[in-house]
Design a binder for these strands. Structure first.
Length: 484
RNA sequence: GCCCCUAUAGUCUAGUGGUUAGGACGCAGCCCUUUCAAGGCUAAAACCCGGGUUCGAACCCCGGUAGGGGCACCA
């Protein structure tokens, strides 16, 4: 069987994490078996439609690496792939159902119930137009009233549909409402357009969020009314926040685009999100998109909702950053370096920070001290673990500055050799010697890279300058002490 | 309110009648070390509750509870 799946977003201007995962799984289900992945734009809500938002979908899918085989601009014989360009198709099919008796005209005014009325949902009642005599329908039509078309749910009985993840699910028909198929503005509703397009586009596996589970029986009824073959359903568990509530851009939860702006790699986001609701059955966690295509098995998708947390995503991001070639990392890091350090050897800097970068967004903060020495307290020179005190620090800097001033080759290896040798001769731990140097060079308790790496990056002139300032600080402090 | 879905550590998860309940993130400690990372090791931490079925239940059945989703001429 040649699998055909489709990702069918509505253009909202950004990609939710949940949408990204739906797109990913939809892509993987098709690609794992060499099938076809289709993009369809669901812009049936005129009020919400934003043309620019369509471009955002292309951009995000491209970043994620989810290349579609068929879709806008890539006709595979099932186009057009933008629903607003398919209006006559929906009308034709809606009328077909009216003729067959599976749908009917509804002349009611658009219901005024506000969506905010979450507390007060009326019981399912059949629409009064459902049983309008033919003559009356004809008369209303001729008088120029523009009707909507509603699905006629069978009286009584129940509908059972099958989902690959959830198995058989049964709904009483009395629980299903006569949903609108074609709005009075001539646009189809989401549910109707989906059924028609999925059939016409030969979609074999319908992949969507679990929020659509309860509309699935109405889909089955529609397929049966048309006499069409029912596709396989795959409803995906929701992605929620740690507190169990759903992710929402309004409440400040990051979208795919937001995460990339924060310095998360698309590969890492894809890797993380793939494991939210699915696992390979092995203990492997690091995956590239190609790996996922290889091992993805839709039958291992979970039923229960998964919480999205930045913590584990951040770890994945670090993993993906470490796997990058030094050149690739450098290119990604470059835009994040502040103006104040542009004169440094940034390629060398990239090599030093790659292993310590878990998020590109941390880079500016991580390297700021290279541009300007932060102000720091003298007690930063004290460190128990390194056996470093104000006195030892002062002595070491006094001894080491002249040594370094004489040094001709200024690089990490030479610096380390000289300082290590000094430590050996003066019978001190390497760490004791390095501590005051690193401290004076950075003004920080923790830095990416050790003393000699920082000196290498800063260059001889700036390094000596910073060391002397550190020494001055220590001298002033020792005088304060002696004067009480 | 009605319908549907779900339930293993704080989080992501493995597990399909017999396991010392496995892995990962995070957290804590130790080692390594030129601070920090990275790496290595160790620790703490879980089967929602109650009934069955069974020689034996995380696993099967029933009932609760909790959480989530749906109930628009939105998608």
């Amino acid at each position: 069987m040649h699998i055909r799946t489709r990702f069918a977003p509505s253009p909202t201007g950004y990609m939710h994490i949940g949408n990204l995962r739906t797109a990913l799984y939809t892509y993987l289900i098709a690609k794992h078996s060499g099938g076809t992945f289709i993009l369809r734009i669901e812009d049936t809500d005129q009020k919400r439609n934003q043309p620019k938002a369509v471009q955002a979908i292309y951009d995000s899918l491209g970043k994620a690496g989810l290349i579609y085989d068929e879709g806008p601009g890539k006709d595979g014989g099932h186009g057009p792939y933008v629903q607003s360009q398919r209006l006559p198709i929906y009308r034709k099919h809606a009328l077909e159902l009216v003729e067959k008796g599976h749908a009917y005209y509804c002349f009611c005014q658009k219901s005024e119930t506000e969506p905010e009325d979450e507390e007060n949902h009326p019981e399912i009642t059949r629409d009064p137009c459902r049983d309008l005599p033919q003559a009356e329908v004809q008369a209303k039509l001729e008088s120029g009233l523009v009707p909507a078309i509603r699905q006629r749910i069978p009286e009584g009985g129940s509908t059972t549909f099958n989902d690959i993840i959830y198995g058989d699910i049964t709904f009483e028909n009395s629980q299903l409402d006569d949903q609108v198929l074609l709005k009075s503005d001539g646009f189809p509703t989401y549910n109707f357009a989906n059924v028609v397009d999925d059939h016409l586009m030969d979609i074999t596996h319908v992949v969507r969020g679990q929020e659509y589970l309860s509309s699935a029986p109405k889909y089955d009824l529609l397929y049966k009314a048309f006499g069409w073959e029912i596709p396989a359903y795959i409803h995906l568990p929701l992605i929620v926040k740690e507190d169990g509530t759903k992710l929402s851009k309004r409440r400040g939860d990051p979208t795919f685009e937001d995460l990339m702006k924060m310095g998360y790699l698309p590969e890492a986001i894809v890797n993380y999100v793939a494991l939210l609701g699915w696992n390979p059955g092995t203990e492997q966690e690091f995956f590239t998109l190609e790996d996922l295509v290889e091992v993805f098995d839709m039958h291992r998708i979970n039923k229960s909702p998964a919480a999205f947390t930045l913590e584990k995503l951040t770890w994945f991001n670090g993993e993906h950053i470490r796997k990058l070639s030094p050149q690739a990392f450098h290119q990604l890091a470059l835009p994040w370096y502040p103006e104040s350090i542009r004169q440094l050897d940034l390629e060398k800097l990239s090599q030093v920070i790659q292993i310590r970068t878990e998020k590109l967004g941390n880079i500016p903060e991580m390297v700021a001290f290279l541009g300007e020495l932060p102000s720091y307290e003298v007690d930063l020179f004290e460190n128990q673990k390194s056996k470093s005190t104000l006195i030892s620090s002062k002595q070491i800097l006094e001894a080491v500055i002249p040594l370094l001033e004489k040094l001709e080759t200024w690089d990490n290896a030479s610096l380390f050799t000289v300082l290590k040798e000094y430590a050996r001769e003066s019978a001190q731990k390497t760490g004791t010697v390095m501590w005051p140097i690193r401290t004076a060079l950075s003004g920080l308790a923790a830095t990416p890279g050790g003393a000699t790496e920082l000196a290498d990056l800063l260059g001889k002139k700036e390094s000596i300058h910073r060391l002397k300032r550190g020494l001055a600080k220590l001298i002033v402090s020792s005088m304060d002490i002696s004067f009480g």
